[in-house]
Design a protein around this nucleic acid. Structure first.
Length: 503
RNA sequence: GGCGCUAUCGUCUAACGGUUAGGACGGAGCCCUCUCAAGGCUUAAAUACGGGUUCGAUUCCCGUUAGCGCUACCA
């Protein structure tokens, strides 16, 4: 996972001082920093993908950092789910870190900021500040704490009183904090509107803001690409970088993914459709999924929609990213965005049959079919263009695997403008013809068409009873290939059964 | 409440002052055809509203409205 030890870039320099190093493409370092508090969310997956694309586009480095400073909410299951999801996407990262292993660094930065007088101890009990904040004006800080003298503060700390460490947001005089966002452009906010946020919790653990900035600085992250929900947090981060004497990275915020009801996608409200593993388990191909996510909030600006991984890497830039939220289009009946499904169908059709067959195997056994490689290989060409998700194998190929066809309406056997007698005549003729056929696709084609002529019938009405007899339904893959794949014995048996049904 | 961001067909988007407002998915229709698919062709469908600026606004500015985000000792 970390192939390039020597990648330790620019030694001391890059994260600090020298802005020019950011224009050196080889120095570009981006990170994806999920917190293991839930399943891998499709919005997170998209953020990961955009980071990855930018890294690969620029020849930079992709860092994966697990932001696990929230001890209360972290779970092992979540961590596993995130890794499973990321591995499934099949987009490799270059370096990997765990924030919980870097606590000393965070403490050190907090300490340094405190020593500079840019942060202060807040002894207000954690729970006490619920009610007051709601009311009228913007809450900026807890009363009294910001003004505490260093002596008083040290005394209370030494006495063992608990405290959180807060950033002392400069407000005398008020300052305008600004940064240039790669997507949203110039951003400005007055410190009069930024509250004194926490750096350290009373248990000594760093908050997200601190840990994230400390690590971004230390890992020489050059570009932070993340969800737009962090856009306003970024002012705080700029402040932290400033206090720590580090140059802030470049920022690029991504428009949020929202549900059809307009709210941010969430597991609680919208269920499993927000989880990457749901797509995997339904039989999306990783690349189709990646391709789909790329089209949400980003465009190559030409009319291309289906793109290979390499094309995506080549064409990806920040100015293709738009600024408004994008809706993932799903419903209760249909949990997947139609465009994602369509793209997946396209990818399935583009797959070599051999490859598709092996992808299909696990889905076939999940459906309860006893499928071996050889059989699947024979069936695949017949169903390939009839499926959109890999799991469709269960509904589209069932009759290839069952011993006995499930019950079907005998009326289905009767062709349009025909009757029972005609259906029976067709099936009896088919029985005779098939019994004598060489049973290859081409032989079956010739034999059955000749049979139709002999019955003075057109192919359509002739083939329908046979198809239904053999597949148990009217809609199925092309007849000759299907018969061939099924084999003579099974076909004759099923036709026999169908004739019985017509008695 | 405060602060911020956003606003083009149902959905994803293109058009960085001048287009019959383009493409894709989905829908409808036709063709192909042994059914279903796939494929091909055709079609319906959008600039939130009100003011400016300009010879000319989807595009720039202001306001309204709506949506979203942040406002935690969550991330």
């Amino acid at each position: 996972m970390h192939p390039e030890e020597e990648a330790e870039p620019g030694t001391a320099g890059c994260g600090h001082a020298d802005a020019r190093c950011y224009t050196d493409l080889s120095m570009i370092r981006v990170r994806f920093a999920p917190s293991p508090t839930g399943f891998l969310h499709i919005g997170s997956a998209r953020t990961f993908i955009f980071n990855w694309l930018y890294a690969r586009h620029t020849g930079g480095t992709m860092v994966l950092r697990i932001d696990d400073t929230d001890v209360e909410r972290n779970t092992e299951a979540s961590l596993n789910s995130i890794f499973a999801g990321l591995r499934w996407l099949d987009l490799e990262w270059d370096e990997e870190y765990k924030q919980s292993e870097r606590l000393a660094l965070h403490q050190k930065m907090a300490e340094a900021i405190f020593e500079k007088g840019l942060a202060y101890r807040d002894f207000t009990p954690a729970q006490a500040d619920e009610g007051e904040r709601r009311g009228g004006e913007t809450w900026l800080c807890n009363p009294g704490m910001r003004e505490l003298s260093r002596e008083e503060s040290d005394r209370r700390a030494a006495a063992g009183e608990g405290f959180a460490l807060r950033y002392r947001v400069p407000r005398e005089p008020v300052r305008q904090i600004r940064f240039a966002d790669g997507v949203y452009g110039e951003q400005v906010k007055s410190t009069a509107d930024i509250e004194d946020f926490a750096l350290l919790r009373s248990d000594g653990m760093p908050t997200y803001h601190l840990a994230s900035c400390a690590d971004d600085a230390e890992l020489s992250i050059s570009h932070i690409i993340r969800g737009q929900d962090h856009l306003t947090n970024t002012f705080k981060h700029v402040l932290i970088f400033e206090a720590a004497g580090a140059t802030a990275p470049q920022f690029a915020h991504l428009p949020l993914l929202v549900a059809p009801d307009g709210t941010k996608l969430s597991k609680r409200r919208h269920g499993p459709v927000v989880s990457v593993t749901t797509y995997r388990d339904a039989g999306f191909l990783p690349h189709a999924f990646v391709n789909f996510l790329c089209l949400l909030g980003w465009s190559p600006k030409d009319d291309r929609e289906q793109m290979t991984r390499q094309e995506l890497v080549d064409v990806f830039t920040f100015d293709g990213i738009n600024r408004s939220n994008t809706t993932v289009n799903f419903t209760d009946e249909d949990p997947f965005d139609p465009k994602a499904v369509w793209l997946n169908g396209e990818c399935i059709r583009a797959l070599p049959a051999e490859e598709l067959a092996s992808q299909l195997l696990p889905f076939a056994s999940a459906a309860g079919f006893r499928a071996d490689r050889g059989k699947m290989r024979r069936i695949t060409p017949l169903i390939q263009e009839r499926m959109k998700l890999l799991r469709d194998v269960a509904t589209v190929a069932d009759f290839f695997f069952v011993d006995e066809l499930p019950a079907y309406d005998p009326a289905e056997l009767i062709p349009q403008k025909g009757d029972t007698a005609l259906a029976r005549a067709v099936l009896e003729k088919a029985r005779a013809v098939l019994a004598a056929s060489a049973f290859t696709h081409d032989a079956l084609d010739a034999d059955l068409r000749r049979a139709a002529e002999e019955l003075k019938m057109k192919a359509g009405p002739m083939f329908q009873p046979i198809r239904v007899a053999v597949c148990g339904r009217k809609n199925a893959p092309p007849l000759f290939g299907t018969l061939e794949a099924l084999g003579k014995e099974t076909c004759l048996h099923r036709i026999e059964k169908a004739i019985e049904k017509l008695r």
